[in-house]
Amino acid sequence: MSIRNTALAAAAGLVLSFGTAAAQQITGAGATFPAPLYQKWGEAGQEPTGLQLNYQAIGSGGGINQITNRTVLFGASDANLTAERLGQANLFQFPTVLGSIVLVYNIPGIESGKLRLTGELVADMYLGKIRRWNDPKLVELNRELNLPNLPIAPVYRADGSGTTFQFAGYLSIVSDEFKTNVGQGTSVPWKAGTGGRGNAGVAGIVRQTRGSIGYVEHAYAKQNNLAMAQLRNKAGNFVYPTEDTFQASAASADWLSDPTFGISLLDQQGEKSWPIVAPTYILLPKNPTDVAGSRNVMRFFDWAFKEGDRFADELGYIPLPQNVKDVIRQAWSREIKGPNGEVIWTGSGS
């Protein structure tokens, strides 16, 4: 009897220790923008998935470099890769969540949400063409405000970032002059203003410089109580940055028009759409050498798509629409193959 008990206990112990040993690591590196969410997903998902996420927020460029060299299981990038680049590195990309970028300002006497701006005027500020807050064009838009005679101090991200990529992309859409003279990129040759390091640097400079305007991720502006401006969207309405206007933008996007999901959500149609909303991406090798590892990555994001939306909401990100998630799962099965051409992702059961 006692021998049997001991054997049972030993077996239970074995199972238990096997259970902990099975908490496999998945490693990823890249974009800093979704890093807080991935961290949160990693913590919350460890129990149900048995996967331990090791994500290093080294920047999108670094993430692309690392996954191209296959030193991590997945890369993460805020800027979508072109089909050509994906082909070269034999990578597959899919979006995880959306983020939104807002304009923050520091004008004495003007409360958050009162200032109205258009993309063209913002582009002119960053081009150094509009230099004072009492410029007739700004006064025209803000009749009920008393805009001061103060120099405009545009503030931008000095470090290369996906935030800059999307913001400069938006300004390039709304202003031809911005497109020709500055253009879109993770760091661009700004014509006016000063640079802060990271969201914190931009927010810091905006907070202490009278007459400044800057762009940061919405979650960041919200947490730090920065004054946010209204923007005129493509439909011609002034919209305030809220979850509703972000969702409106996500819903009106034509996600399925591009098999690489590389669609732009900037300047969307729609009555209520906030114009600067952008997805962030995960990069996976199409021919993973570590098949089990790659399957684990998909298993992790499958879980995140099912259970992770509430964390995204909490942290100020916008979850993907349900139909997009389904299409992504199908694409995993179709695009990512093992060494012998076998399908790696066969649904949540695998």
Partner: peptide, 19 residues
Amino acid sequence: ATGNTIASVIALEFPEALQ
């Protein structure tokens, strides 16, 4: 006026520089 230095440019731009 604002400016930059060699070390600051490298620190800021390196993470987003592609191989």
